[in-house]
Design a protein around this nucleic acid. Structure first.
Length: 510
RNA sequence: GCCAUGUUCGUCUAUCGGCUAGGACACCUCCCUUUCACGGAGGAGAGACGGGUUCGAUUCCCGUACGUGGUACCA
């Protein structure tokens, strides 16, 4: 076992966008595999044809690409263990289902959905709100255990639809060692006879995950904690089909929760106003839109960083990690056991850290696109870089660059005159009127010259520079924010500076 | 209901029997900054409850409570 090549897989169902929890599962898979020099496989679990959603698979692939978590094998790039879509592997599953039936470990069941519903209604009580199709009730249903062999053959011969269900043994204990939780045990009497092969011939997740993990030589299987309850079914299947010695090691990851403590869902995003999905997603059937972290203005490095620290830490106080560091430090034994509530404020902090750490060039194209979308054309890339470096400490999201820097490229739409007026007087009016004249004469239009001239003039007018800089800032920026005023004046140039001062002077007088 | 799993500041977490319980986000105060941030210094803020085991429990065991997940021909 230990000498086996590490092969892990992420096996999403292509039913919509990928949310935080899904991406974190990918991350932990990826980090674990890369640290051991193993392989990371993407497998599409599209066994439910009624839930197929166009574009979902492409969305998943693109999300992994954006996050820098690309698979070594998968439907988009092939590999030695394909196909990587379960719908394309359909013929492979039946033989295993038949094998289980032959061994008496599974059986045919002919109950229609209506009959199942009726059974649940009939046996439902206050103490047992969800009766199970298991050892207690299977004799009362229509299956190859309760029916005679002739009857079963006749039904199958007539083409009556059927499913294959696992026959859960009675009174046995199934135990397996979870890499995160340690030994976990289940009493098989309390697990129902899960459907393995559906009436349409497709396997359910339970059969498919076992067969494909075996066929694809998966060594370690990571999934969310919501799967823990069905683990005994999978363990039994491994025992029956391929031998426990070949079973991958399981790791059930703690869930990511919403602010109310329930498993994170799209609902939380709508309710609390933060993204849930990695990227924007619009459901093609309902047109239901869900915002993504990418479009909200997150850097992939930050997004990955946030996810890594939700349920894991390296034991030190370090919180900002590069992908290389994560791969190096990641250790399953340091993954928490309990679910973690997602905190959007903290996520923004991570993003801000990454914006500050990375050179502007690495995210400049994204920000430039945002500016152009806002109607601001960037002509001079070098100057744009200078502006971005100047304001980046003030931005937690890439979208923050627009309000923090648009005034470098266009006249402020509104000027906060109300912040100037109360302390305005004739002396200041005269000061700025002359400042315009002096600035027009200035030969060297740079930060130092602008400041020098400004201060000399303030002294000449017997005014305190501090009382004049805020008005100047508001004239140039429109409000009380932004980097140094003379930096701004230097960058926007003589013409714009003078024009903005003149414009505000008129507003103040009005 | 049953099964599984979990429970340290508001949130993410450290602690693998010695704790005056540490850090980060958010919050508050101050400094820096003639704006806003960034940065710096402080502050407030936690071991669900009850039993054991132990010289000593946040750490180990049991019980209770509460949370979450599961209980589909969905994954």
């Amino acid at each position: 076992m230990s000498s086996k090549k590490v092969r892990v897989r992420f096996a999403p169902s292509p039913t919509g966008g990928l949310h935080l929890g899904g991406v974190r599962t990918v991350l932990f898979n990826y980090l674990f595999a890369k640290k051991q020099g193993g392989e990371f496989i993407l497998r599409i679990e599209d066994t439910d044809q009624t839930r197929f959603v166009a574009g979902a698979e492409e969305y998943i692939t693109e999300t992994l690409r954006w996050c820098g978590l690309e698979a070594d094998e998968g439907p988009h790039k092939g590999g030695a263990y394909g196909p990587y879509r379960q719908s394309e592997r359909k013929p492979m599953y039946r033989e295993y289902a038949e094998k289980l039936i032959a061994a008496g470990q599974a059986y045919y069941a002919f109950d229609t959905p209506e009959e199942l519903e009726k059974m649940r209604g009939q046996y439902k009580t206050a103490e047992n709100p969800s009766p199970q199709y298991g050892h207690g009730l299977r004799d009362k249903m229509r299956n190859s255990l309760s029916l005679s062999a002739e009857e079963v053959n006749r039904l199958i011969g007539e083409g009556v639809p059927y499913v294959v269900r696992i026959k859960m043994p009675e009174g046995e204990t199934v135990t397996f060692n979870d890499m995160i939780r340690g030994d976990v045990s289940f009493n098989t009497s309390l697990v129902d006879d899960k459907v393995l092969l559906k009436a349409d011939g497709m396997p359910t997740y339970h059969l498919a995950v076992v067969v494909d993990d075996y066929l694809m030589k998966i060594s370690h299987a990571f999934r969310g904690e919501e799967w823990l309850s069905s683990a005994p079914v999978h363990v039994l299947l491994w025992q029956y089909l391929f031998g426990l010695e070949n079973m991958p090691q399981w790791a059930h990851l703690p869930l990511i929760l919403g602010p109310d403590g329930a498993k994170l869902s799209k609902r939380h995003g709508n309710k609390y106003g933060f993204p849930i999905f990695a990227m924007n997603w619009t459901d093609p059937r309902t047109n239901d839109f869900t915002e993504g972290f990418r479009e909200r203005g997150f850097l992939p490095q930050a997004f990955v960083n946030v996810l890594a620290l939700l349920g894991w830490n390296d034991g030190t106080d370090q919180e900002v990690f590069t992908m290389e560091e994560l791969i190096e430090r990641f250790d399953l034994s340091r993954v928490n056991h309990s679910g973690a509530i997602f905190d959007f404020e903290k996520a923004k902090w991570f993003n801000q850290e990454w914006i500050k750490r990375l050179p502007a060039a690495s995210w400049q194209p994204e920000v430039k696109a945002l500016f152009e979308k806002a109607g601001i054309t960037i002509a001079d890339e070098a100057q744009f870089t200078r502006v971005l470096e100047l304001v980046k400490d003030r931005c937690a999201l890439l979208s923050d660059f627009i309000p923090q820097a648009d005034f470098f490229f266009r006249t402020p739409a509104t000027v906060d005159v109300a912040a100037i007026k109360p302390k305005w007087n004739d002396q200041k009016q005269q000061f700025f009127a002359e400042l315009i004249r002096q600035y027009e004469l200035l030969q060297q239009w740079n930060h130092d010259e602008l400041e020098k001239e400004f201060k000399e003039m303030a002294a000449a007018h017997q005014l305190k520079p501090g009382d004049l800089m805020l008005p100047l800032r508001i004239m140039l920026v429109g409000g009380k924010f932004g980097p140094g005023v003379f930096d701004i004046a230097a960058i926007i140039g003589k013409e714009a500076t003078i024009q903005r001062i003149k414009h505000t002077l008129q507003l103040v007088q009005a």
